[in-house]
Design a protein around this nucleic acid. Structure first.
Lengths: 201, 201
DNA sequence: AATCTAACTTAACAGTGTTAATATTATATC
DNA sequence: GATATAATATTAACACTGTTAAGTTAGATT
């Protein structure tokens, strides 16, 4: 009697439907400007149905962000296979990180700026996707230090310095699109290059 | 006939009163969670009175941010008198920038993250306070390059790299207070030091 | 066929930013 | 001092918001 299974599948399907609709609206119109009613309209259910699948609007945001982090993680992990120089791999990772942020600017802001605002005290949950992303960074950095290509500094600090740099340039480019930046790719390159050179010194 | 002057002064006074109340509420409860009615209650006027002094809520935010930028500018300009090494002055400026952000985290986010979200296409207005702040950075950087203490790179890019670094670490520290950062001051120092070393190389 | 349960909807609450029309107050003129 | 005029402030309303509690419907189990 596969009824239960079918029902469970249908339930999961609707959950995904909600998630997809929410992401699309959040990304296109901004988290603040999306109402539960708008999401409900899009999926052609009543607004309150959403509350059967998600605790509240913040929980919906949380789930959307989790997906974003998974996407980011996938993007980064693909660089692992690249068997080139460890510093070069790190450079590429930084580049991929910023590119990801600029490719999905609203997703990036949702995850790294909006969410912490609504979900306070957001650390690195044990086993969370966020932790996995940062672990990736730890690995990359660790290799550079062990191979003495970087100054002998603790992995944590080194990683955090790199994260600061890429996070900073990503957000500035997203938030101030009208600012007279030097050519975008050049700026990104220079930020990453400068930081890496600084970590060697 | 000083009546007009007095009236103008009174008007300015109420404007300031609104601004002070708005800043306090924005900072303590977050822009989103502050309603015009709340601000009105605080100053003991009806909500619609605010609209006689500010176009809308975003305009109110704008004015609050302008003040924040003025504060930041003042903080930075005080370092100008410091007649030490140009690189050292730049380092101190970076430190002061991050410290400012961490001292008034909500003001910083309001100005550099929330405002651009509500006031899109925000560039560097001619004569704006924001422009003055960035001009300060240009000056500092320019000196370092001219004195050949930095690699010969254009002032714009160099400045933007520095801004990325300090902006990044400031926001990360604000947004993820529960993240297992290395000791805060050490991290800030290292970010700035690393970036500067990278700019020398 | 009766009961139970899961899925979904309706109606409502207390709140939001903002506008238009109205009322109040203070000044200037006669 | 009374009156017209301008500046300032308020009331009432509109169309929204997130969320909860109660009610409805359809399908599965007994």
């Amino acid at each position: 009697m596969g009824t239960k299974e079918r029902r469970a599948r249908e339930k999961e399907q609707l959950r995904r439907q909600i998630l997809v609709a929410a992401r699309e609206l959040f990304v296109n119109e901004g988290y603040e400007n999306v109402s539960m009613r708008k999401i409900a309209n899009k999926i052609e259910y009543s607004p309150t149905t959403i509350y059967l699948y998600f605790k509240d609007k913040a929980d919906l945001l949380d789930s959307v962000c989790k997906e974003t982090l998974l996407n980011l993680l996938n993007t980064l992990e693909q660089l692992k296979n690249d068997k080139s120089d460890s510093v070069e791999t790190l450079r590429k990772s930084g580049q991929a990180y910023v590119e990801f942020g600029l490719k999905y600017p609203q997703d990036y802001k949702l995850t790294f700026v909006i969410r912490p605002q609504f979900q306070k005290g957001l650390g690195l949950q044990e086993g969370s996707v966020g932790e996995k992303v940062f672990n990736y960074l730890r690995e990359m950095v660790s290799e550079c230090i062990q191979q003495k290509k970087f100054r002998q500094m603790d992995v944590e600090t080194t990683g955090q310095v790199l994260w600061s740099a890429v996070h900073g340039v990503t957000l500035l480019l997203i938030d101030f699109p009208e600012f007279p930046w030097t050519e975008k790719d050049k700026l990104i390159d220079t930020v990453i290059h400068t930081t890496i050179e600084g970590l060697k010194a």
